[in-house]
Nucleic acid binder design. Structure first.
Length: 516
RNA sequence: GGUCCCAUCGACUAAUGGUUAGGUCACCACCCUUUCAAGGUGGCGGUACGGGUUCGAAUCCCGUUGGGACUACCA
């Protein structure tokens, strides 16, 4: 195993520790899963540890059940943390709301070092400040020299307000001049002038830290070596670097991942479709397909291959090969990939697929033996992308077909009834009722009558399945069984007699079958 | 508006100064075929633009344009 990151860091002797740090504000986002995946791949590739930390410092946005969903989604994808609120570890607690005292102490430390300060402005005062700045045409930022903070108020008044229990925040004292420079493993050197960095609130008036403080303190305390996160964090990284400096800590390596995009190239959002991992699970995508697909969104091992197992991704992964530009989340390719894994699963784990299909049938009040379900899966799997499509695509394998008058009129002509009756008689005599026997007898019949075989196929398909597309009819009939087949033809003929017959087409051998 | 990031076929990407700019999805055609798929073969299609540097630029530099993210006592 090689360690390419060693070439530009002094951390060779130190083992890799990375973290995925989602907020419990709802279902795990597919973009979050990719961030987690890249962290996981990086950790495993280097024999390091992957940590899950819950960033719940905003109590107002907390959604119950989120943590469970995050854990379940990761587990579903095969991404198991080494340390987390449920897996434990030596650096806990792994939930930020349980670490408030740690943050408070660290904010205090910054206060003592003079790199942070108290501010007493109310939300309304801050809002007015921004409006003034906007009106004056300058960028909104906290104006340390005119607002109500320990500098403008003086030490005595500050002390008095604090003792009076006035709501206070602690802000980072960003240098007025100079610049912050840091290195990003994916983007190279990034420089931000200090004048463009705001005096970020570190500790809110409710005593909770903001993301910025909690994130830096925890990454340091948990000995995180590489911060691998979404590109949306790039602009605030300068603040974080300033914080590390304020504490006198060494910064971790940074790697900001390209965003996952909507088809219009905006940040992937709910407005354009499903974004929760949960949604993709419900739609029947396989974890290996989702993992494979999102791994290749923003990273590529430079090979002509498209299909990779998790283990193969682990051994091939490197941050050096992560792209800079955002990647559109393309459902069409995901569907293709899922279909590839469907075929693989049919080969390797048909029973598992049967177990997944059974509840889908039961939802509709249908049932069948494991063997029968398995044979239906084998029959139709190349025609669907996701398993749940099966119950729609091949509903007639489990229940009486639904006949559609419009489809009927495109296929049916004034000789069809007679032909179908004849076919029915012929089928009744076939024994054993196997695909092979059916093929032979119907072939012979077609030849003898000089009827194109496809005409027989489409007629039987219409009568027996109610559709115009599907798996081969010989296999379909053999699986359905003779009784069902004859029964359906009988029912179908009965149904056709309930329809007004005056508009039936005349037989035209030239154009009859749709495919010429 | 400001700051930062980004820019190869419609989408995902390969090519890290020398290739007829390659592959996958999608799309189109053909083959296979009882239909639809799957599979096979072929095709369509791209270095945003303008300047440099160089014998040579998709690749390095500058600018333009375009897109995105961020700009909270949210993460």
């Amino acid at each position: 195993m090689h360690l390419p990151f060693c070439s530009n860091t002094l951390r060779c002797s130190m083992s890799v520790r990375v973290r995925f740090a989602p907020s419990p504000t709802g279902f795990l986002h597919i973009g979050g899963l990719r961030t987690a995946l890249y962290n996981y791949l990086f950790a495993r590739h280097h024999g390091g540890r992957f940590i899950l930390r819950i960033e719940d410092t905003d109590r107002t946005r907390y959604v119950p059940g989120s943590v469970e969903d995050i854990l379940e989604s990761l587990r579903w994808a095969g991404i198991e943390p080494d340390e987390s609120p449920v897996h434990g570890g030596d650096f806990g607690p792994y939930v930020q709301s349980q670490r408030t005292e740690i943050y408070r102490q660290h904010a205090q430390l910054l206060l003592e070092r003079g790199t942070a300060y108290y501010a007493f402005d109310t939300p309304e005062e801050l809002e007015r400040m921004r409006q003034r700045q906007q009106a004056a045409g300058i960028a909104p930022h906290y104006d340390r020299s005119s607002m109500r903070n320990q500098f403008t108020l003086g030490p005595e008044e500050t002390k008095r307000l604090l003792e009076a229990g006035e709501a206070a925040t602690i802000r980072l004292k960003v240098p007025l001049h100079g610049e912050v420079k840091f290195h990003d493993l994916i983007r190279g050197t990034i420089v931000v002038p200090c004048k463009d960095i705001d005096d970020q609130v570190l500790l809110k008036s409710d005593g909770f830290p903001t993301y910025h403080l909690a994130n830096v303190v925890d990454d340091h305390l948990m000995q995180i070596t590489h911060v691998i996160r979404g590109e949306e964090w790039l602009p605030s990284t300068a603040k974080h670097v300033l914080l590390y400096e304020a504490f006198g800590w060494e910064t971790p390596q940074f790697a900001h991942l390209p965003l996952l995009l909507n088809p219009d190239r905006s940040k992937l959002s709910k407005r354009h479709g499903d974004v929760a991992v949960r949604d993709y699970i419900a739609k029947g995508y396989f974890p290996e397909a989702i993992v494979n697909f999102i791994a290749l969104l923003g990273w590529n091992p430079s090979s002509d291959r498209e299909l990779y197992t998790l283990d193969e991704l682990i051994s091939a992964f490197s941050l050096e090969r992560v792209n800079k530009a955002g990647a559109v989340f393309d459902l069409a390719k995901l569907d293709w990939m899922n279909a590839q894994y469907l075929k693989q699963r049919v080969q390797r784990d048909l029973q598992g697929l049967v177990a997944s299909v059974r509840p889908l049938l039961e939802e509709r009040g249908w049932s069948a033996s494991d063997e029968y379900i398995g044979r239906v899966i084998v029959l139709v799997h190349e025609r669907i992308h996701r398993l749940p499509e099966l119950v729609e695509f091949a509903d007639y394998m489990f229940t009486a077909p639904h006949y559609d008058e419009a489809l009927f009129r495109t296929t049916w002509d004034d000789t069809s009834e007679e032909l179908l009756v004849e076919l029915s008689t012929l089928l009744a005599a076939i024994e054993p009722f196997t695909a092979h026997a059916l093929q032979e007898r119907l072939n012979a019949f077609a030849k003898e009558r000089n009827i194109p075989f496809r005409r027989i196929g489409s007629l039987l398909r219409l009568a027996i399945t109610g559709k115009s597309v599907g798996p081969g009819m010989m296999d379909t009939m053999a699986l359905l069984g003779k009784d069902v087949v004859l029964d359906r033809i009988r029912n179908f003929l009965e149904w056709t007699r309930t329809l007004p017959h005056q508009h039936i087409k005349e037989h035209n051998p030239q154009q009859l079958p749709q495919h010429e």
